[in-house]
Design a protein around this nucleic acid. Structure first.
Lengths: 153, 153
DNA sequence: ATAGTAGGTTCTATTTAAGAACTCATTATC
DNA sequence: GATAATGAGTTCTTAAATAGAACCTACTAT
């Protein structure tokens, strides 16, 4: 199975892997959420090679999560901004960091904080069902294949 | 930056990348949630090479998401089961598949369905704050660096 | 004795990533 | 007017990870 084959997979998780299935892409998105917009900003804050960064930014752009906006002419320069699709990824990022904090502990304190904009209170993320309000987790949700579950399926 | 360096990063997102930052690991976890437990089951359903599958299962085990349980002796055989840490990953998986469904559309219908165990109703996942009940997304949550945000922390 | 099952390991070839240097257009400094 | 700095990449070489196939081991069934 090749990289390319995944982007047309029927399974949404497999399609997501075609975009975020590598070491760097989620870290680039994290930087976007923290406000980074420019090439050198990403490069310096992450320590990613310039080559890979250019490639990943292109991928995020073509997947519709980022969009380039010119911020000056002469010489023409662009910055990368989250699109609505990219912003919609925020709950995934929050859920992931919450899981990681609780299940992959480490000595140092977390270098990112997530707070409510309206009052600065620390958040305590929980996934719920919009209709029933019920908490969604391994106990309350049943996951099952509809038809075929192979990645390319 | 090497793979290895990320597992001790201060940033929880970076630490998560040391575990799930590749093309296959989330698909393996998806299969776990769908009930797959055995080596050949994963291999056949995903089309992953046996070599990589063995390596990824070891990684998931050492990261504490999976645990091997013997299911027979003579010859000794093990199956892989989700630990509490692994089960706690369910909301991330749900949030990811929901985002993917809404933002990486494709022709075929999704091959996985997620329903409430109690009544079989389709779920509509939304991340909320446990205390305030407020919906958590890019508009309501402020993400900011605490100290240093480089991946190696 | 032969084939099948289950869970791997080993091998080579290809692809991807790391790390450093280089380009190009423009502005700022000596 | 020459030299350095800025910003956003591109181009190299080397190192690591992945793909794909074949092989191994310990049984069980035919």
């Amino acid at each position: 199975m090749k990289w390319h084959d995944m982007k047309d997979a029927a399974c949404p998780v497999a399609r997501a892997m075609a975009v975020i299935g590598d070491r760097w892409t989620l870290l680039i998105l994290r930087e976007c959420f923290l406000g980074t917009r420019r090439f050198d900003g990403f490069q310096q804050r992450l320590g990613i090679t310039r080559h890979l960064l250019a490639e990943r930014l292109k991928r995020l752009e073509s997947a519709g999560l980022l969009k380039r906006h010119p911020y000056q002419e002469r010489p023409l320069r662009h910055e990368y901004r989250l699109t609505d699709s990219g912003k919609a990824f925020a709950p995934v990022m929050l859920a992931l960091q919450d899981w990681s904090r609780n299940n992959l502990p480490c000595d140092d304190s977390a270098p990112i904080s997530f707070v409510l904009r309206e009052n600065g209170a620390e958040i305590d993320p929980v996934l719920t069902d919009r209709r029933s309000g019920q908490e969604l987790n391994h106990r309350t949700v049943l996951m099952r294949p509809n038809t075929e579950t192979r990645a390319k399926g």
